[in-house]
Design a protein around this nucleic acid. Structure first.
Lengths: 354, 354
DNA sequence: TGGTCGTGAGAGAACGTTCGCTCAGCGGAG
DNA sequence: CTCCGCTGAGCGAACGTTCTCTCACGACCA
């Protein structure tokens, strides 16, 4: 296959006009070109299979119509949800999304961001908690490219989009307390993450409000994985056998927690009630269906992109963080409002991947 | 903030050399430049905060070091896994990944691919089953840009990377038959997808091999979602109350199937055995732990990218499809080899998103 | 008939690189 | 002393656009 791209020049030659005129017709907006000429150019373009070269256009316009999304790890289903929202918002405004997966190492973070900058993305959405402490990356962002983050960025000056995670923790835990549980534990993500600490604070708030005592024995740090959740609940039961409820910081860990409880012979919700957060697609179908705090993930991604594009257009934006409301979805695992498996609702559309 | 990029010209001026020489030092490979000059240029670049402009480089080199990934839907956790593999393979070779999410509509497919082409991506990885019948997109791909697909592409000429899904269906079903199940049903994805039909054929193969009778009553089409899975199993039980096993075409649907079975009062695996496929992170932690055919998703993504980059370099590639082996992972849901919840193994690392 | 104006088209420059050449300077061999 | 070849550096062009101006040409009005 030859697979050559034809340029404006060639199209113009075939239509008998200058390439600038061809440019006006094919890529320009509303410009004054005789209808007959325009038609000649258009048919020449069609015959030759002209495809505009965005690279050249970007060079002169100093805009790539591309944004970068740097992600903590796509292993997280929540991030996928976020990506969906971000991508569609970007597409709506004619932008494409360049993704970067940081992975665990933490070493190459700067390089990852640097490649995005060198590609001259118009802006960056940072969805990576590992950047929370990375002053080097923060410097890079502040210096070169507009950025919206879903997490705190050291040094400030980077708009934030997200939810109030202290509320998330409080909401979940308060629900358990209201259900009459007295020994409420929690399974968290890694402490070094802000969200984790925020949710933990919310958990403590709710305990206090409910007149319950907080205790280190009731808190188990984990790693967002189902395996981690299973290990954490085992630990919790060992330290506090009277445990009768647990707030889990993600649906994915909750899967492991349910498994761990079942392995320990505790029934959910009778003996131990469970509330988590995220509300991923499968949450309603676990056994028992998960009561969980729904985070507006797709919307968060979309809003982040919208804010970012405003920024790139040089528009004034409200410097206050954009806080999107989370909402408690009551199902069976908390022992209250024990709705069962939904029977008719199609729920979220399934993926169609294969 | 000014946020201006400095160019080679400015760096060169400060170092007292021509910009071409600066180019050699900063972006070129091994070139002959006096050590002292090079140093002057480098420190000028550092002081000015020079960041090479890949856009300009791409224009002259006619290579963007970027590949496109067109995805069916990121709602699918399997696709996320795939993206991880693809992204890291791409990064390893200095390429970035531009993602496009097709979504359900099917209308805008051509436009999605067209924007990738106009951005002059070096190649495209197609991970979207909805392109299976899209001759228009296939034409576009064949015409403009190297492509590797994870699904059949109409018209041929596009290398394929994937697994043998007939084997997947056979492996899963044969396992159930070997466990002595006599009324084995199946919950599938949408029939219009090839993988679905392939797995269905494998399912039928296994029934035949096991001396069991196939029946339309035993097959329920679904939509990859947990909700769909729940609905499908309900239908199946209604049509064939003697159902004692089911092969589910994805882990996500299996979650719904387990819920549906539980709602119908059937115990798993005693009364109904379940085998699915994918082996997502949570599969081992469901109740009961899922026996499932593990698909090498990340590896598939990585191999696709590697193949694609070979293609873009103009290297000869074996036109035969790359088939990556799938593997049955036996857990409890099939009623055989009832390993319980893993107790120590960390499993896959959890995501760290918050 | 001459000036003005609107319309359509093209000329030139610029965007920031890379690439292929040329060229000055210099040391060493003949 | 001449010639060669090597080294280090710069020059010009090219990549495919967009953008800003200028220009040719009629038509229209006075």
């Amino acid at each position: 296959m030859p697979r050559r791209y034809v340029s404006l020049k060639e199209v113009a030659a075939r239509a008998g006009v200058s390439f600038q005129t061809a440019s006006k017709v094919l890529n320009g907006g509303e410009v004054r070109v005789a209808a007959e000429t325009a038609e000649r150019i258009e048919s020449a373009a069609r015959e030759l299979g002209y495809s505009p070269n965005t690279v050249a256009r970007s060079l002169v316009q100093r805009t790539t119509y591309t944004i970068g999304l740097v992600a903590g790890s796509f292993a997280d289903p929540a991030l996928a949800e976020l990506l969906i929202g971000a991508e569609s918002a970007a597409r709506e405004q004619g932008h494409a999304v360049l993704v970067s997966n940081l992975g665990g190492s933490g070493e190459g973070n700067v390089d990852v961001v640097r490649t995005l900058v060198e590609r001259r993305v118009d802006g960056i959405v940072a969805a990576a908690p590992q950047l929370e402490e990375d002053t080097e990356v923060a410097e890079l962002l502040r210096r070169y490219v507009p950025c919206v983050s879903l997490h705190h960025v050291p040094g400030g000056g980077v708009p934030l989009v997200g939810s109030n995670h202290r509320d998330v923790g409080r909401m979940a835990t308060a629900h358990l307390a209201a259900a009459g549980r007295r020994h409420i534990g929690t399974v968290t993500g890694p402490y070094r993450r802000r969200v984790v600490r925020s949710r933990l604070r919310g958990y403590e708030d709710a305990l206090r409000d409910g007149g319950l005592e907080a205790s280190e024995d009731l808190v188990a740090e984990s790693d967002w994985s189902p395996a981690g959740g299973a290990a954490a609940i085992r630990l919790l039961l060992e330290r506090e056998p009277r445990l009768d409820a647990v707030f889990v910081q993600s649906d994915l860990m909750a899967v492991g927690v349910l498994a761990g409880l079942s392995a320990a012979g505790r029934t959910v919700p009778t003996e131990v009630a469970v509330v988590s957060c995220d509300d991923l697609a499968f949450a309603a179908y676990l056994n028992p269906p998960l009561t969980t705090v729904r985070l507006p993930l797709a919307e968060t991604g979309a809003r982040a992109v919208e804010l970012l594009l405003q920024l790139t257009r040089g528009e004034e934006v409200d410097p206050a963080p954009v806080i999107l409301p989370a909402e408690l979805v009551v199902r069976a695992s908390c022992g209250l409002g024990a709705r069962d498996v939904p029977t008719t609702a199609p729920g979220r559309p399934g993926a169609d991947h294969h």
